[in-house]
Design a protein around this nucleic acid. Structure first.
Length: 450
RNA sequence: GUGGGUGUAGCUCAGCCGGUAGAGCACUUGGUUGUGGUCCAAGAAGUCGCGGGUUCAAGUCCCGUCACUCACCCCA
């Protein structure tokens, strides 16, 4: 300790970590989300943290900032790891996975994947370099039924509604509507328009109009694009309002039908949970049909907490089959970090222990261990104190860790076992073979209600 | 990648116009013999991010650098 050089512990920007109390809540969230996904029949898949760079770059993506892998001790000429990069999302690895295991999967293949991903971006509030995504995708040969475009928002709604988070809205749009509308309007470069319109909520009408005009659109065209982007609603009037703009094309019609189908399918969800919003575009991703994007109602600029969409052929680059899919991803870390920052994550316990067994003295250690075993076998998370410190110290330890019960094995030959309820301070004789906790909100082995 | 801010004990920070560091929390021990959360007392803990420069003297001024942080970009 003395002359040893201490490496200063420092946080690494964009790589969040939590205290046990907070982590406990995060784990409950993960369990909840997993259960939600499985309740709809999605199967779990986990892929390696790394992929071949060829795979990660397959779609010529606007080169997400990818972390590459190399060994510190690697010979300069050894490039065996040089082609590996940490995955920046879970969709691309999944596409590769499907191509890889094509023969072993049953289609339509419905999978969920909850893993960390890495992006070498500049971190910021709500934006991390390492974070956890909870992805669900459906992939199928040749075509994916539109049914799934509606099912995914339903799943997300189900899952997020079960978490205690601020109000949020899932916005839905359809790329075909945008693409078809711009085509019908005679716009030459729809991608530019999509990008500009995507910023509507941030830079406003005038900002978007400026970009559009600069891109060569006429005032009328820009106005029409803006009018389209302003359309937002849950009712069946959305298609009519689009048609009222006087633009038409076969693709637009197709998109409107798909969007209507999705919204109709979700009509039973609470009003406003899922909203058709024609300004949602989702950057320049591979999406070709339905797109999703969710954000917090009171803080839309915090960033999307959930996003996804339909892609016409994602795995096609890895296999000579057409494999379209539709997927959505919950930005777990982004959502969770907001609540942590606001001090709203307090519920978790410091440790999972239900009962801590006191070791009265060295001679009684065996009894303490046996008592611990018995309690454990009965389903209580039990720890036996790790030394023979003063009883006061032992209880203090339990207190600090928020352990609800402290167990006292007999202090002498024919004494009784006693258990102390740390919440009330009450202590009474008890039999470790039959004892069940009473009162206390945290109660038994289940530990709280979920 | 571009621009702004910050960098002193594990944490949050104080340290005036340069004179070689302090508080609160946390931590350790004690307040006797088998019982916690309060209180009291004592104690341990700092390359003042790193490197260079100015100066008799630098945590304090200057330059560089790194890290963190905020905004832009982009996104979960």
């Amino acid at each position: 300790m003395s002359d040893q050089r201490v490496v200063r512990p420092a946080p690494i920007s964009g790589f969040p970590e939590w205290t046990p109390r907070v982590r406990a809540v995060e784990q409950r969230w993960l369990d909840h989300i997993r259960a939600g996904f499985e309740s709809f029949g999605f199967a779990s898949v986990e892929t390696p943290s790394v992929e071949n760079l060829d795979v990660l770059m397959a779609k010529g993506e606007t080169s997400q900032e990818v972390y590459t892998l190399h060994r510190l001790q690697a010979d300069p000429k050894d490039e065996s790891d040089a082609r590996l990069g940490l995955h920046f999302d879970l969709t691309v690895p999944f596409a590769r996975y499907v191509a890889q295991h094509f023969n072993e999967l049953t289609f339509p293949f419905k999978r969920y994947q909850m893993q960390r991903v890495w992006r070498g971006e500049r971190p910021q509030e709500g934006r991390f370099r390492e974070f956890t995504q909870c992805d669900i995708d459906v992939i199928n040969v040749d075509s994916v039924p539109l049914h799934f475009d509606a099912e995914l928002p339903r799943i997300v709604h189900r899952v997020l509604s079960g978490l205690d988070i601020p109000a949020w809205t899932l916005n839905v749009n359809n790329r075909k509507v945008l693409q078809g509308f711009y085509e019908g309007l005679g716009v030459k470069d729809p991608i530019t328009v999509i990008r500009a319109v995507d910023k509507l909520h941030k830079i406003g009408d005038d900002g978007v109009r400026a970009i559009l005009v600069e891109a060569g659109l006429t005032d009328d065209q820009a106005g029409a694009c803006l009018a389209l982007a302003r359309i937002r609603g849950t009712g069946a009037d959305v298609p009519a309002r689009v048609r009222d703009l006087g633009v038409s094309s076969p693709l637009l019609e197709e998109g409107l039908e798909e969007l209507t189908f999705v919204m109709d399918d979700l009509a039973d969800l609470p009003e406003g949970a899922v909203v058709a919003d024609l300004s949602i575009a989702r950057g320049l991703d591979y999406y070709t049909g339905t797109v999703y994007e969710a954000s917090f109602d009171d803080d839309p600029d915090y960033g999307s907490i959930c996003a996804g969409g339909r892609y016409e052929d994602l795995a096609g680059q890895f296999i000579r089959r057409r494999l379209p899919g539709v997927g959505i991803s919950i930005g777990l870390t982004r959502i969770f970090a907001k609540l942590v920052a606001e001090g709203r994550i307090e519920g978790g316990r410091v440790c999972p222990t239900d009962v801590m067994v006191v070791v009265p003295d060295a001679e009684r250690r065996r009894e303490a261990l046996a008592t611990g075993e018995l309690l454990r076998s009965r389903g209580f998370n039990t720890e036996v104190f790790h030394s023979t410190a003063k009883v006061g110290k032992q209880i203090q330890y339990a207190s600090k860790k928020g352990i609800p019960f402290v167990w006292f094995p007999p202090f002498d030959e024919d004494g009784d076992h006693e258990v102390k309820d740390m919440g009330s301070g009450e202590q009474a004789a008890a039999d470790p073979a039959t004892w069940t906790p009473t009162g206390g909100p945290e109660g038994g082995p289940e530990g709280g209600t979920e």
